[in-house]
Design a protein around this nucleic acid. Sequence first.
DNA 1: ATGGTTTTTACTGCGTC
DNA 2: GACGCGGTAAAAACCAT
Length: 325
Amino acid sequence: MSESESTIRTYTREDESETSRSQRESSTVCPECSGQLLTDEEHGETVCSDCGLVVEDDAVDRGPEWRAFDSAERDSKSRVGAPTTKMMHDKGLSTNIGWQNKDAYGKSLSSRQRQQMQRLRTWNERFRTRDSKERNLKQALGEIDRMASALGLPKTVRETASVIYRRALGENLLPGRSIEGVATAALYAAARQAGNPRSLDEFTAVSRVDKMELTRTYRYIVRELKLEIQPADPESYVPRFVSRLELSDEVEREARKLLRGAKDTGLTSGKSPVGLAAAAVYAAALLSNEKVTQSQVGDVADISEVTIRNRYKELLEIDHTGVFN
DNA sequence: ATGGTTTTTACTGCGTC
DNA sequence: GACGCGGTAAAAACCAT
C-alpha cells in the first residue's frame, strides 16, 4: 500500500564502484545521443545520463577470466583437473571408507582398530555432507549469477536470492528438487521481493527448468520458508516495456498514472500485473499520440492482444469516470 | 477433484493504407 | 490484399476450496 513512490525516476545515480567487471569491449556511449552511460544497480539497467535511454545489455561474458599471450602461458593458466564422474554427488573426488572391518589384505581388524575406523567413518561422513552442501551452494550461486545477468537483475537481488537459497539448503528443502529449479525459484522470489520482478516467461527463457517446475518449486519454498511476497506491482514492469518499445518518458508517466488510477478503483485485483502494465503502456502511447500496435506490446510483454484490449478498455474507462488526477 | 475466474486461442468483420 | 483493431466463443490455465 505504499504509494510513496510518486516522483518520476531520475536516472542520475553515479556508481563508479564496478571496477572489477571485465570491460573488454563494452561501449560506454549512448547510441542515441552519445551521452555517458551509467549503470543503475538498483534497477538493473544501463542508462544514458543525457537522454535517459535504457540500454538493455544482456551480454554475458562466457570466456575465461584470464588472458594468455602464448601457448605456454595458456597451459600454465588453464585449470583442468582429473576426469570426474557425475554419478556421485561429489564427482568421485572424496574419500570412501569401506563398511567391512577388514584391512587391505582381507584380514579382520582388532576391536581397537574397528573403533578407530568407526570414528573415521563418522567424521568422513560429516565432512562429506558438508562438502556436498558447499558444492551444491556453489553451483546454485553460479546459476543464480548467470540468470541474473541474463535478466539484467541488480546485485542486491542476487544477494537476497542467495540468502533464500542458503535458507532452503539449510532447512533441507532440496531433496527431490533440482538445484537449478530451486535456484531459479529463489531468484524469482528475490526479484519480486525487491520490487524488480521479471515474469515467469522471462525466467523460463533463461532457466533450464520449465514453467511448471518453477512455479511448483517457487510455491514450495515460499510456503516452507514463510517468505512474504506481495503481488507484483504492475508499475514495476512499465519502464522496461516502454524502453523496449522505444517510447518516450511521457508515455511512461502516463502509464503509471493510469495504473495508479486503476489501483485506487480496486479493479486491478485478480488481474495479471503484466497484462495491466502492458495495457497501460499501450493506452498511454495512444494518449500521447505515439504509435505502437497491440501486438508489439503483447510481444514484449508476453501477453495476448485480447488481454491488452480488455485491460486497456477498463483503464480508459476509469480515467474518464474516475477522480481527476 | 471441482468450480469459478482469468487468459489464450482461433475466427470474424470492419475500416484504412 | 495486408494490416491494425474490436468483438466473441470455446479452450486452457490458474487458484482456492
